[in-house]
Design a protein around this nucleic acid. Structure first.
Lengths: 351, 351
DNA sequence: TTGTAGGCGTTATCAA
DNA sequence: TTGATAACGCCTACAA
């Protein structure tokens, strides 16, 4: 039954235990062995009685170690971001760090604000999954020795590690699958690349891979923010022309898969006859129509890798080894949305 | 171009600006007016040059205000939790607080650990959406004056505000809708209530409301963690009996809606003929089959309300006003999964 | 308008 | 094995 109205301090515990701040500090600082059994007991009892917890603020101030990892997220409601965050959180917990999150709702101003805040709390490392115009603040952080790791996108200017999908390979997997399934024309849908390097990488690989796979088709960029109409226009524009060969839609991320599925559903387009596949696996992909084929990203692994990366840099004495890239493979989950009805299959098999 | 390898301190800025710590402190502490224009300029220049940012750790230590809000989440990948978190984050940002999150993956041990950590960082308030066996640590926090707000569940022991859905009303809305749609037997599916008060509230209201609506049916609890088999067993057990009257399934939350939908889908059960509806709106509910009827929770509002609640208590001088309950109404989104095929409709309309 | 001198709760250094 | 004491970076009387 603690009587204290306020959180106890190390000094109070010391008094209560009839000893000095130093010993209490040692007790909680992982140097218990240096204390006599008896003193340990007294400190433990006093601390328990007072409900004492070392103040991380004070600790951080003294040692310069905040034990905080910051994470900047462009959209906290994006399942991909959350999934990665889950991995990040796991790794932090496992390594004794806490996670300070900043959600920017895709607003550069908020991004700067959050960056400043995270810096103010002296986060020891920063995981970034945000638009990130090569920011002044970001560069400064890196300069001052805060390790940065970018998830799913890289920033040319700032020295930072990158963790994410092997985008080129993923696009190849998609094209392989679509081609093997009998589709001959592929429409690739992406959000505008802007600074997001992974979007650029996927786009570039698609353009390159189309010919290599003997496929026709094209890539189109569209902003989901502009409402469902934008998606509809693009898709309709392409699907309107008579289908002489089997056609498929390839979505560059989960958001697009959702938007496209909504549109197709609303127009009663039969999934499979028009192929549909997307990068990012989502809860519902197996539930819609015949199921939607996806390329699943190992999000937990990506999140954990991001943190491991940070901590490694924190612990390593090397001031600035060159940026590292960690790439993970996507996992293909084939479903009905890329299964052609029988008559189409036949027409493909005869050369 | 800052030269410093280390983050600058207030003292360095003071020196660089040819002034004292105090003035620099005032400059950044929102007392610029008290400084001469000229001094302001010098400080601004020096600070910019050195890339100075006040150290929140030191600030928090001195003033006792960490400017941190903690949030404890049982499952960070649960869309409901994330949606609430989005609201929480928005409100924090708007009020100049940062968010320290702890994800427990439904593990009570992790919950305690996180609670201790959040306490160590001296969070000024705590938003909790977790299992929360009335924890020793939690009680202590409340005792020491940290305001607590529980989202979607209440803990008998600990004094805390509660923000969440008007559960009784929501169940009524569901039963009203199902009844009006022509269903006469309702199977209510819930996760085990345990300490989660909102589950208990919904369950109790369902049992009470069934008769009041002239419906037959029953409520069943099942653990999703036990795999899809558990869900299947319960549903099959009920649906196996010959359907003499139109039957519907009512899911107590989004997780269950997902699990149930998976099962029904796998068995080709026609949605609508067997009614399906759930609490929690999810991205994909409009996409599956004829669409799944849901009761949407105003998650953003709930998250924001949680923070407002905390800050109000922080700012109010009252030591301990009685716990407050804030309840929000659900919004019914009717879809095909609760639309009976025509012949059923007819049979219902003749008494 | 500006500056000086503690002290917030910890850890690190040094001495006993 | 223990304890006094000086930082850590900042804010806040108080004084000039």
């Amino acid at each position: 039954m603690p009587q204290s109205r306020q959180r106890a301090t190390i000094l109070e515990v010391a008094h209560a235990a009839g000893t000095s701040k130093t010993s209490v500090s040692r007790y909680f600082g992982g140097e218990r062995e240096r204390l006599s059994r008896e003193l340990q007991g007294r400190i433990a009892a006093a601390a328990r009685r007072l409900g004492y917890r070392p103040n991380q603020m004070a600790r951080g101030l003294k040692g310069g170690r905040s034990r905080l990892i910051g994470m900047l997220v462009a959209d906290i409601r994006n399942p991909y971001s959350v999934a990665v965050m889950h991995g990040v959180e796991q790794a932090c917990r496992a390594r004794g760090y806490s996670l300070l999150v900043g959600n920017t709702d895709n607003d550069p101003a908020q991004e700067r604000r959050h960056l400043a805040l995270l810096a103010a709390y002296r986060v020891e490392g920063l995981v970034i999954n945000a638009a990130g115009s090569p920011d002044r603040e970001l560069a400064r952080l890196a300069e001052q020795g805060t390790p940065l790791v970018l998830v799913d996108r890289e920033l040319g200017e700032v020295p930072a590690d990158v963790v994410g999908l092997d985008n080129a390979r993923a696009i190849d997997q998609a094209l392989d699958h679509l081609q093997a399934a009998g589709y001959r024309e592929v429409l690739y849908l992406s959000e505008p690349p802007d600074q997001a390097s992974s979007r650029r990488a996927r786009l570039a690989r698609f353009r390159h891979g189309l010919a290599a796979h003997g496929l026709s088709g094209e890539a189109r960029c569209l902003s989901i923010g502009h409402g469902p109409a934008a998606v509809g226009e693009v898709i309709d524009g392409v699907l309107a022309s008579p289908a002489t060969i089997p056609r498929a839609l390839l979505c560059a991320n989960g958001n697009l898969t959702l938007a496209v599925t909504r549109h197709l559903q609303a127009h009663g387009t039969p999934l499979g006859e028009v192929g549909l596949m997307g990068i990012d696996e989502l809860d519902w992909c197996e539930l819609v129509g015949p199921g939607i084929t996806t390329l699943a990203q190992p999000t937990d692994a990506i999140g954990r890798a991001a943190v491991e990366n940070l901590l490694q840099r924190l612990e390593s004495p090397q001031p600035a080894s060159p940026p590292r890239r960690t790439r993970y493979q996507a996992q293909l989950i084939p479903r009905g949305s890329t299964r052609l009805p029988f008559h189409h299959d036949r027409s493909q098999e005869s050369p």
